[in-house]
Design a binder for these strands. Structure first.
Lengths: 222, 222
DNA sequence: ACGTTTCGATACACCGGTGTATCCGATACA
DNA sequence: TGTATCGGATACACCGGTGTATCGAAACGT
């Protein structure tokens, strides 16, 4: 206790590595079979460790799951924030077919590109679904989830606003609400694509998403 | 084997009753804690039986879950079909503020009323979420789920079409896609309401749904 | 090179849930 | 009323996963 700052033992590099490996493995296992079906053994084994390593690093499966949820969302959020930061250079590329009015034709790819950028979507979405379920049952987790969601919605709203701006349109009332609807629609498409199976789930989801977006706007704008 | 029709032993009334009780109990338990966390004991106990009764009526937990999914979806679909059948008498009530153009103000309550009509939404939605997760992992279940969804989407599309018709608007291209987006939006609202907790989840979800719908249409129509 | 510490492996005791084999009471039918 | 059958209760053997206590080896400082 020479200094106050070293209350944390500043985990060794070695320990940190195995923690990471365990978390990566856990992410896969959780995504594939769910929290409950996942066993400590499965996780340890996939990381090429034994259960001993697990219990040396985490107290419970649930703790690991939550740590994982937080890590994942931080990564995701960082990605989104990065996009917002240099939105000026990203958007023009996506708006090459710059019409005077922002229609689904433009809006779709923009939204999709930001929603699709986060790595392997299938596993992440499965994990996310698992988390959501937990969040609906456990108020503690629910609170956490909603906070994270709030942050993500905000960033996504910024992107939407920027997109409208770029074509000289008033962003109008609430871009966050719009962002929400778009994300829901995309996620539903992703879900359906996953169920249909086959490879390139990503692409299938993209198709479905665009289709619904067009249908939606076609209906309401007529 | 006197007749072909009696391959089914035509389960006794008594047996049927306990099966129903077990299914009702299972629905609650599954919804509350999930498929995996649910134990046969919990289910039997809630139905005021012992595990013996369960194993006498079902082979596995999973079998029961799927039976439950099918029963639920049939009920839900029947409800929806009923609505479609006498849509002419239902719609006018909801369209009392009959404008010349169908806007969110009219569309929202209509959609909401049909989505909300299916009993206790919280439990059903939790159950549904559980089923979805299963459907994304098990191709067999996935196929089943998509078929059920397809049917529901179709009926819901009919309702949307009727609503547009009622105010003398061309239903335009694809009402099923629109139905899809609306359902997704509503379900996301319901999900959020559940996480926020508090009673009258129904009402909270309704609020959120209308809010997003208005935001959405406001954005795109401007 | 040597002692120390840290980290993961191994072994074991424990528990909860499953599924089955058997039993007993109620109901139906003559 | 007596008998056969059906349906659910009870008891038990079994297994998979958990968590802990102990051990051994590799990394680190000196």
């Amino acid at each position: 206790m020479t200094t106050d700052a070293e209350t944390k033992p500043a985990e060794s590099a070695r320990r940190h590595k195995t923690r990471e490996r365990l978390m990566d493995a856990a992410f896969e296992v959780f995504s594939e079979v769910g929290i409950h079906a996942a066993t400590v053994e499965m996780i340890a084994e996939r990381a090429d460790f034994t259960r001993g390593a697990f219990y040396s690093n985490f107290d419970t499966k649930e703790e690991l799951f939550l740590a994982l949820a937080e890590r994942g969302n931080n990564e995701r959020l960082a990605l989104l924030r990065g996009s917002v930061a240099n939105i000026d250079v990203i958007l023009p590329t996506l708006l090459h077919s710059a019409g005077e009015k922002l229609t689904a034709k433009e809006l779709g790819p923009i939204v999709a590109s930001f929603l699709e950028q986060q790595g392997e979507n299938r596993l992440w979405f499965l994990f996310q679904s698992e988390l959501r379920l937990l969040a609906m049952r456990d108020p503690e987790v629910g609170k956490l989830y909603l906070e994270q969601k709030r942050a993500a919605d905000h960033e996504f709203g910024n992107i939407i606003t920027a997109a409208f701006d770029a074509v000289g349109l008033a962003p109008a009332l609430d871009s966050v609400e719009l962002a929400n609807v778009l994300m829901n629609t995309y996620e539903a498409a992703l879900q359906e694509a996953i169920m249909r199976g086959g490879d390139s789930v990503q692409e299938a989801a993209h198709q479905l998403f665009m289709q619904r977006l067009l249908g939606l706007i076609g209906q309401l704008a007529s």
